[in-house]
Design a binder for these strands. Structure first.
Lengths: 316, 316
DNA sequence: TAGATGATTGGGAGCGGTTCCAACTCTAAC
DNA sequence: GTTAGAGTTGGAACCGCTCCCAATCATCTA
């Protein structure tokens, strides 16, 4: 396996020059650069990440933390899609991705701490649930860039990426309205969850703008023409109720939800939903991290991923 | 941040001795070991993974490849659960986990190759779909241990871990039979898929052992008392048919499936299934890799993860 | 033509570990 | 008392890169 010295010798230049070429630094003449590139090609040379890491104190690796506190992923079947996006942007930016569990231990210590202490990652991507905990304070000390997947409320020093939940709530209401459903309720007002609150706010905004009134879905769905459900589970419960009281979907009542469970499109009726681009979310989280890494004092960003309506069978 | 020299100085020993203690090597007196451990503790010392990697040519990192050829994870919502298992066992074994996409590029080359060439991983865990392809031949050259998640048919030199699909098929039939369903069909005989074939074989074995005959689910489900479905989607289609022809589930017909989609338990009726422990699968894949890493010429293993019946509403 | 300036270039000195060999200590045997 | 051998120990050499300084070269100015 060729080293930087082999390349230097073959190209008839110094080690420093090769290093400059590899790292795309200025102050190398075009002629020299070509010679070096040629030698690299011929020797099929690839820099050792360890030597590089050791010398530069950079790992060129980003850590992503998965929340493994829950028993089953089934509680959050969506996160993998986000990771796919993170993976893609991180690698394409020339970095690598270390996957870490929140609660994983290594030699009796939290694995994250080991990784941080061993300087194995230059930055950390984590989910908003993790921040603000005791756990997070630990991490923060290491003073590396952090990006959160999910909005942060009490920290204006950390960049985050999230779905545009407000818009999602607004659009859900707007879509139902545009299909002729006027009396629209929101099901699943779990105000302790940020995303739920935001979606609810978006819904309220639209409702207000039309002079309608905010509603929750009552037991018999009396006087309700449309329901916005926080997730598929709520949607299916509403569907059950409709069946029980013999209310026709989508003729008499329209239903829309936000998430899109793996099985959802095969079910009957399939539920119209606000489509959330989780892959895009991951992609952005990755680029934002690269951003921070390349420019340490870039500003804190809050990024919102737009959403769209995915029309299925529960709306006319 | 303390280095090995600081520790050596503080403990009043040589660098080599500290190294021996860190790596748990023999030939260190108990007394010295204690001194060193104390110094390590006091200085909060953690070896640099780069220095270590550079000197020892070991990365203490395992790569896991995710299949990102499909557009959406929705096609395989289960793999994240497997990764959770891999992650856990790998870290607890003192290794780290690098997450890699199959088709991700880095500087115009496949990321996997870059990682392999940069010697960033000591071993690779991948899914069976990846093996046997042109792609895989590339990987194989690097001559590091490989473990496959999913049975391998044409390679007896690579260890793999899989669900006990044969047993799953057998148990599905057995369970239906035990609940009084005798005429049992198998829906979703996708013989090109290994796992489908194996489940089908298991089903046939049980059916044969009772002197019953193998069936497929006909359009009107005539003469059928139980259906084993390859996955939830098949199950829901069968359920639709039952509704159409007014056949009562679970009274007149029993339905069982193999997978367990995130939403499945909330649906009505929820489908009885053979429960597959994907986390365990990942756990085993990780340990098997550690095995190989610690003992290079250990034998090739084929490991089967047992399954169980998860009773829900489509069987009486 | 000398001197100044800026663009290139070479290579020594680390980075923080592991490996290995020589040296030292301590018994046990002769 | 000497010697052999096993158990310990220290530290030089090295892993393959980056960083930085000094040296060289080309160009421009007075």
């Amino acid at each position: 396996m060729a080293t930087i010295n082999d390349v230097a010798k073959r190209a008839n230049v110094g080690r420093g020059t090769v290093s400059r070429v590899i790292n795309n630094e200025p102050f190398v003449s075009e002629e020299t650069r070509k010679k070096v590139l040629k030698a690299i090609e011929e020797l099929n040379y690839h820099p050792s990440s360890f030597a590089r890491g050791l010398a530069s104190q950079n790992s060129y690796t980003i850590g992503v933390i998965m929340d493994n506190t829950m028993d089953k992923v089934y509680a959050n079947p969506f996160i993998y899609e986000v990771f796919r996006g993170v993976e893609k942007s991180v690698y394409e930016g020339g970095y690598n991705l270390l996957l870490l569990g929140k609660n994983t231990y290594q030699n009796g210590k939290l694995a994250v701490e080991r990784v941080l202490q061993g300087k194995m990652v230059d930055g950390l991507i984590l989910q908003e649930q993790i921040i603000d905990s005791e756990y997070f304070k630990n991490i923060e000390q290491y003073n590396i860039p952090i990006v959160s997947i999910g909005k942060l409320e009490n920290r204006d020093d950390i960049s985050w990426i999230d779905i545009d939940n407000h818009m999602a709530g607004y659009m859900a209401a707007e879509y139902l309205y545009s299909r002729g459903y006027k009396k629209i309720a929101f099901e699943g007002v779990e105000l302790e969850k940020i995303f739920a609150r935001e979606r609810y706010e978006g819904y309220k905004e639209f409702i207000g703008s039309k002079g309608l009134s905010v509603m929750e879905a009552n037991e018999l769905l009396q006087n309700i023409e449309g329901v916005i459900c926080l997730d598929n589970i709520y949607a299916y419960k509403i569907l059950q109720r409709c069946k029980k009281i013999n209310k026709k979907v989508p003729e008499e009542i329209g239903i829309i939800t936000f998430d899109n469970y793996p099985l959802a499109e095969y079910l009957q009726p399939s539920v119209t939903n606000i489509e959330i681009d989780l892959f895009q979310l991951g992609l952005c989280a990755g680029s934002e991290m690269l951003n921070k890494l390349r420019n340490r004092n870039c500003e804190v960003n809050r990024i919102r991923i737009p959403v769209s309506v995915n029309i299925r069978e529960t709306t006319r």
